[in-house]
Amino acid sequence: MNSYYVQILTVTGINIILAVSLNLVTGFTGQLSLCHATFMGIGAYTATLAALKLGIPFAVALILGAISAALFGFIIGVPTLRLKGDYLAIATLGFGEIMKNILLNLEITGGPMGLRGIPKVTNVYVVYLCVTLVIFSLNRIMHSRVGKSFIAIREDELAAEAMGINTANFKILAFVLGAFYAGLAGGLYAFFFRYINPNNFGFMKSIEILSMVVLGGLGNTYGALLGAAIITVLPEFLRSVSPVIAQYRMVFYGILLVAMMIWRPQGIMGENKVMKRRGQAA
């Protein structure tokens, strides 16, 4: 296969992991997170540093990256998610920017220059093996007691609490799991592109991931998958048509988020009417 197409296919796979994991937090559990790319970045930097500086084997480095992202998720999740979820959006927004600031200023992360010379370990097979594992485990979680609790929290937090669900803990759990998967995607990204810098993992990337989930369908894993594929491939296609259009990408995401919420909140996969009503309560 043409290496350009293989690259797009690989990136699509990485984005699928990002989208389905954000969907766990935002689509299934109903908590808006705006720093998913930051968790990806934490995973990427941790995995890279573990492999480069400590000589840790790549598979282990990938997992370390995911775990450290999850750890950060926990640190942010505890103060914000113990309360009503409203603060999560703004706290994650701030956290993302602060993390970027820190990455830009630390010596060990190479500052704005980032890290270079990362060995290329990720290939399309590794990525899709990970995609399969992520989706498999996500599906199992969502069909279990844990996943049902996530959905119950989204549907009605107070009623969920009345069912004996420790809603604070389960919201944090969803957030930490989402960060874990995002960290994994970050490691894959680093070992694929062989060069990372803080701007790869900024707010705009988080918005791109959110757009994938919203486009495909909040609360629908395969919708998120489809959304990731479209948002990865479409700009590439448009770029080949006209380079000017690529410049308007972020404007397009903005319009997309508003328009989808108003006209098709269930996303293109449809069916799942997660977003239709604000519960039954007034």
Partner: peptide, 24 residues
């Protein structure tokens, strides 16, 4: 004012009720 988990099945609503008596 009835606060069911509207998008979940009737069965799942009752399954959720057993949350605190289960441990998975």
């Amino acid at each position: 004012n009835i606060r069911l988990f509207g998008e979940m099945s009737v069965l799942d609503n009752v399954i959720i009720g057993q949350h605190c008596r289960t441990r998975t």
